[in-house]
């Protein structure tokens, strides 16, 4: 099944050229919308920045993830390829994992660039890189696993573009919460603050959706 994401990756290279700028654009727009000071100020400890930067970052990631997910399933819906996948008799769990992994890879790429952008734009220092890395990874996995599951619900429908956000965003509320808190802790706080517990929440979320997705993808993929 890893094969599949390779393929999708290959195809999606085209898309990354669109989602990535989109994310950066949002990041910049956030900077514009909130306060001009934010952009100018370097590493001065502005409480507003501290409060907002991680949240903005993860919101941007969420929006980009939605686009990537939409793209991932648009690929299949395009030419009746879901039918062909079903004809191939693939293991639904494998399809689920493959899809999720592909989106994860894409998303991590987006996050790397976005994170760098956020670092430049918001000028946030990193206090605990280990925690940050773990957070990014876990949150991304969580987002893609849950997102893939829900995107499959709406796969091949005309209303997909509107339905998926409606379904996914509330579900991802804990992820947004956990990721924001954890990365805030990672960026600013002293090592005493329980940032790892948030990472733990993200891990639990990911694991849960891993299991649920693998179980539930069969009935979802199966038409009729």
């Amino acid at each position: 099944m890893t094969v599949k994401d390779l393929r999708i990756e290959l195809t999606s290279r085209v898309v990354m050229a669109q989602i990535l700028p989109f994310g950066l654009l949002i990041l910049i727009l956030f900077g514009l919308a909130i306060s001009p000071d934010l952009v100018v100020v370097g590493d001065a400890r502005r409480p507003v920045i501290e409060e907002i930067a991680p949240g903005l970052f993860w919101l941007t990631v969420l929006l980009s993830a939605l686009m990537a997910l939409g793209r991932a399933f648009a690929l299949e819906a395009d030419d009746g390829n879901l039918d062909a996948l079903r004809m191939a008799g693939l293991d639904p769990a494998g399809v689920f994992l493959g899809k999720a992994l592909a989106v994860t890879v894409q998303l991590v790429a987006v996050e790397t660039v976005l994170g760098f952008g956020a670092f430049v734009v918001f000028g946030a220092p990193v206090a605990r890189p280990g925690l940050l890395a773990a957070t990014v990874l876990l949150a991304t996995v969580g987002i893609t696993l849950a997102g893939t599951l829900y995107a499959a619900l709406a796969a091949g429908l005309r209303v997909r573009d509107t339905l998926v956000p409606l379904l996914v965003l509330p579900v991802l509320a804990p992820v947004l919460l956990g990721a924001t808190q954890a990365s805030r802790d990672a960026l600013f706080a002293d090592p005493g603050v329980p940032g790892w517990s948030w990472a733990g929440l993200l891990a639990v979320f990911s694991l849960l959706y891993l299991g649920v997705g693998m179980l539930a993808f069969g009935p979802l993929l199966e038409e009729s």
């Binding site: 709406a154 429908l157 339905l163 409606l166 379904l167 965003l169 509330p170 579900v171």
Partner: peptide
């Protein structure tokens, strides 16, 4: 909101 989404799915 989540269950609004559920109802939306039921109406697909």
């Amino acid at each position: 909101v989540m269950y609004l989404g559920y109802l939306a799915v039921r109406r697909l």
